[in-house]
């Protein structure tokens, strides 16, 4: 039986093993490659998506678990927080290699949705699961603060 869910606001379906991680359904079957593979064991955060608006590691999320639910990926993310985060990211040139940045951006948006004005400690806690081997962390922190200020207006 296919797994039906809402992906970036539109109906989506996967006809295969419901144990297949959402990450590979998105990338290999639905053609949304903005969400990345980095470790496969929820240690790096490159695969972060939003499930019902909350941060979720898609590499350890069986697609069967999202049946009937709303999934948002970097390709479909929208709203004031998303706009602010991506604008802040570009303004100070956060990305280096860029491979982890979809996950960083998704986690940052999730953080700002949950907390309007995060402290450094809030950022450390919320972003601890997102590795960046290029170590763009100084700018990630700055961009989150900048985005929070933008959302506040």
């Amino acid at each position: 039986m296919p797994t039906d869910f809402t992906l970036n606001g539109k109906p989506a379906s996967f006809d295969g093993d419901p144990e297949t991680p959402l990450l590979w359904v998105l990338r290999d079957h639905l053609g949304l490659t903005g969400t990345k593979y980095g470790c496969g064991i929820a240690q790096c955060g490159a695969c972060t998506v939003h499930l019902e608006g909350k941060n979720r590691r898609s590499c350890v999320t069986p697609v069967g678990m999202v049946a009937g639910k709303k999934v948002t990926t970097i390709e479909g993310v929208e709203g004031a927080e998303a706009k602010a985060v991506q604008k802040a990211w570009v303004a100070i040139d956060v990305p280096q290699c860029g491979f982890c940045q979809s996950g960083q951006v998704m986690s940052a948006i999730g953080l700002l949705k949950a907390k309007k004005k995060p402290s450094d400690t809030d950022i450390d806690n919320a972003m601890a699961g997102n590795l960046c081997r290029c170590a763009t962390y100084v700018r990630i922190r700055q961009a989150i603060h900048d985005a929070a200020a933008m959302v506040e207006g």
Binding site: T33, G34, T35, I74, W89, V90, P95, S102, V105
Partner: peptide
């Protein structure tokens, strides 16, 4: 490449 790499559009 900052825009492409902040929006998931950059292709690897």
């Amino acid at each position: 490449d900052s825009v492409a790499k902040s929006t998931g559009a950059a292709q690897f």
